[in-house]
Amino acid sequence: MNALRKADLKAIIISLVVFVVLQALLSTNSLDAFWQLNIILICINIILSVSLNLINGYTGQFSLGHAGFMAIGAYTGAVLSVNFHMPFIVSLITSFVTAAIIGGLIGLPTMRLSGDYLAIATLGLGEIIRIVIMNVNYVGGAAGFMGIPRHTNFAWAFFVMLFVLFFIKNYVNSSYGRACVAIRENEIAAEAMGVNTTKYKVLAFTIGAGFAGVAGCLFAHTFYIIHPSSFTFLASFNYLIMVVMGGMGSITGSIAGAFILTTVSALLSNWPELRMSIYALILIALMFYRPQGLFGNIEITSLPVLKRFKGGKQK
C-alpha cells in the first residue's frame, strides 16, 4: 500500500511540473488573452466533468442537471463576493456547501427513479433552478449578475481542480466508490451485499453537485458577469458529452474529454454554427466507433505500458 502513496507523490510532482510550465507561459505572456482564459476554462470544465462522472460514470445514475448545480455555486459565490465582500476561499467553500445541500435535497426523492426517467427529471430540476434564479431580482434576474471581482486566476483554478481530482480519485478507490460501482453494475446485488443504495446514490449526487458548485464559483469569478443562460440544460449536455467522450468511470477520460472539447470549442469559436455542426458529427462518430469513450473505464495509471514502466503490480 506504500506503493499507493508513492503513486500519489508522483502524481503530485507531475502536476506541479505542469503547473510551473503553464504558469511560466502565462507570466511571460507567451499566450494571448484568449488562451489564457481558455486554460482556466479547461480547469473548470475538468472539475465539472469529473464530478459528473462520479454520478453518471461511477454510480451509473444518469444526471442531466449538472449546469443547475453549477449555477447555484456561481450565484452563491458571486453574492458572497459582491454583496458581502467575503474572501474568495469562503465563497468557494460556501458554493460547495450550498450546491451540495441542494443537490442532496434534490437527490433524496429523485434517486428512486432510474434510467431515462432520472435523466429527464434531473434535466427538469436543472431548468427549474435556472428559471428560479432568472426570477430573483436580487441576483440580477434575466439580465445577469454583474460586477463580480475577477478572483479566479490560473493558480486558483489549477489547484482547486487538483484538489477535486485528488478527492474523487481517492473516493472512488475506497469502500464509498466500490459501493457506487456496485450500484452501477447491479443495484439488487449491491443491496444484497449490504450496500445502502439510496445512501450512496444520494452521497454521490451530493458530492458531484457540490463540486459543480465550486466550478460555478470559479466560473463566476472569471468573467465579471454571470447570466442564467450560461446554465441551461444544453450546458449540462456539454459536460455529459465530455464524460462520455472520455469514458464513463475513468477520471483520466474526464480530464481528456474536458480538455479536448474545450480546446476544440475554442479553436472553432470563430465559426459558431459550423462549430456546433462539427461538434455534433464528432459526437455521433464517437458513439458509432467508440461508444465506451476514449478511455473506457480505464485509468492512465493502469495502462499496461505505464505499468511496466513503473514495474509495480499495484492497481
Binding site: 466500490r178 459501493a179 451485499m193
Partner: peptide
C-alpha cells in the same frame, strides 16, 4: 447477479462493505 464488469477480487471486496 455478479458485478459483471468488475474483477473477481473487486466483487468480493464490495461484499466486505458492511465490515469497513
Amino acid at each position: 447477479r455478479l458485478f459483471s464488469e468488475l474483477t473477481v477480487l473487486d466483487n468480493v471486496k464490495i461484499a466486505y462493505h458492511t465490515h469497513l
